[in-house]
Simulated scan of single mutants.
Amino acid sequence: MKKTSIRFLQSGVVLLAIVTLIILIRFPMLEGRAENLDLLHIYMDPLILYGYLASIAFFVALYKAIKLLGYIGQNRLFSLTSLRTLKSIKHCAIIVSIAIALAAIYVRIFHHKDDDPAGFLAMCIVSSFASISVAVAINVLERILQNAIDMKSENEMTI
């Protein structure tokens, strides 16, 4: 791939991270139950803190994606470091999907009787499905990359 394409994709990942961070910071202040709370109590809500904790895996996956794009730019895609990076992205996607599912279960069990958690649960289902889809796609890429690395090492041994 051209260096400009790699830089463009890396910029897109960084932009996604910035937008996600802005949403994570701004959304709790706009939430319905936070309108009468001060700033400290808004961000000390257990579910908000859990969301921040769970988002660490998402940001780690974005960082690893930037590293993987760097390896591609250096023509080091067929290496063990690229394979390890793909594996860590897959693990992060699995962690994110589990964290979202746990949040959905928590809200479903402990929601206030006057609240309707249907919207939140629908968002959890969609985002869990998206995260699992990313993990499955990366698993397929990981197997393909592993086969390519094995073939490359076999060819190097015979030469």
Rank of each mutant, 00 (worst) to 15 (best):
Q146P: 02
M123W: 09
L102K: 06
Y52V: 14
A130Q: 00
L145T: 00
L21Q: 12
S133T: 14
A135W: 00
A122S: 06
H111E: 01
F59K: 04
M151G: 03
E31H: 08
A93Q: 02
I98G: 08
N147G: 12
I42W: 00
K67W: 02
V60F: 11
S79E: 15
A61R: 01
T158C: 03
S55C: 13
M44T: 15
K64P: 03
K87E: 10
E35K: 08
I6C: 05
S82I: 06
I109T: 10
L145V: 01
P117Q: 03
I98K: 06
L16E: 02
L121G: 11
V60C: 07
A104Y: 01
A104F: 02
I94M: 00
A65R: 00
F59G: 06
T85H: 09
L83P: 11
A122L: 05
I105F: 10
Q74S: 08
V14R: 05
S153M: 13
A104I: 02
H112P: 02
A34H: 01
M123L: 11
L47A: 11
F120T: 07
E156L: 05
K90G: 04
I109W: 09
A99V: 07
N75E: 12
T85A: 15
C124K: 02
K87R: 14
G12R: 07
A104T: 03
R76D: 07
G32P: 00
E156F: 03
H111Y: 00
L145C: 12
L62V: 13
Q146F: 05
D114V: 05
L15K: 04
P46Q: 12
A122T: 12
L77C: 07
I89W: 00
L21D: 09
H111N: 04
S127I: 14
D116L: 01
Y63Q: 10
L69R: 02
M44G: 06
S79R: 14
F129K: 03
T158W: 07
I98S: 10
C92V: 05
A17W: 01
F110W: 14
H41Y: 02
A65W: 00
V136A: 15
I89R: 01
A17G: 13
R108C: 10
